[in-house]
């Protein structure tokens, strides 16, 4: 019975998913290894266990740090910048959604610009931001913020607009003030939408900081990534970065889901 229940649970889906992923990885890695045309298989896809093994490699790469120490140090720098940018973008995004919902004119004016900012490639935007701020670290935070605020603003705005007519009428019948309408009805109703925006934005903010890192050498996963590709250090530094960035991206998404569940416990309840 316990086994049957377990097989049907959502954990089972996750376990199957993870298993299939690694089996698929190993099959491809094996094919790459056996392929006569590919001379350095670790550049295409090494075995996953080899990446794990490289984590425990005690060889000092730059004279001071092992591969994993170097990767984690840079990951920390990237993560701090993306979190700063993410929080900034979240606040801007929310305030902009609020302003757009309060005023149709602001919405009409701001929306095309929002779209426009999204259409400029990050690599094109980064030098412009760098020229404005004059500081690579600040511009990395800015880029993360810019990428965060669009999904947050549009989703939160959609949340405000999703409130049904009757709730507005109810508030009107109670003679509620605009402030009360927002605090009692619109903002709580928009919370799930706000979190949808955050879930989209969190991995984006991290990816963006990594990409912008590559522009200028400094501490950061992107910088280390470009160095590792130049062949000055073992290829496994590159693979460690790939795995760790992916893990941070997924974790950031999961973290947003957890925070949402803590904030709105009613969403956990099953429908009767």
């Amino acid at each position: 019975m316990v086994i049957k229940k377990f097989l049907k649970s959502k954990y089972m889906v996750n376990i199957v998913w993870i298993l299939l992923f690694f089996i698929g990885w190993e099959i491809v890695a094996l094919l790459v290894e056996l392929s006569p045309e590919i001379r350095s298989p670790e550049k295409v896809l090494p075995h996953f266990w080899k990446i794990i093994a490289s984590v425990f490699d005690v060889n000092k790469i730059d004279g001071e740090n092992t591969a994993i120490q170097l990767v984690l140090m840079n990951a920390k720098a990237t993560l701090i910048r993306s979190v700063e940018g993410f929080i900034l973008g979240m606040i801007w995004g929310f305030i902009l959604a609020l302003l757009m919902n309060l005023s149709g004119i602001i919405e009409k004016i701001a929306f095309p610009y929002l779209m426009l900012i999204q259409m400029i490639p990050i690599l094109g935007m980064a030098p412009i931001i760098l020229a404005i701020t004059g500081d690579i670290n600040k511009s990395r935070i800015w880029i993360a913020a810019i990428l965060t605020f669009y999904p947050v603003a549009t989703n939160t705005l959609a949340g405000f607009k999703s409130v049904e007519k009757e709730k507005h009428e109810l508030m009107y019948s109670y003679a509620a003030t605009t402030f009360q309408i927002y605090t009692k009805t619109l903002i709580p109703a928009a919370i799930p939408y706000f979190f949808t925006g955050l879930k989209i934005a969190a991995p984006l903010a991290i990816t963006a900081s990594i990409i912008v890192d590559t522009l200028q050498g400094d501490l950061g996963l992107g910088c280390l990534l470009s160095q590792s590709l130049k062949g000055s250090m073992t290829r496994y530094v590159f693979w460690q970065i790939v795995v760790i960035s992916a893990a941070i991206g997924i974790l950031s998404y999961v973290l947003m889901g957890i925070i949402e569940k803590i904030i709105s416990p009613h969403n956990r309840l099953k429908k009767n």
């Binding site: 049904e164 009428e169 109810l170 019948s173 109670y174 003679a175 709580p188 919370i191 709105s264 009613h266």
Partner: peptide, 21 residues
């Protein structure tokens, strides 16, 4: 009458707030 809360209104759908008990 509305400002004095002389009436209460009930709609076709319950219009309850999911996030409030």
């Amino acid at each position: 009458a509305r400002l004095k809360k002389k009436y209460g209104i009930v709609f076709q759908s319950p219009v309850l707030y999911d996030w409030r008990n």
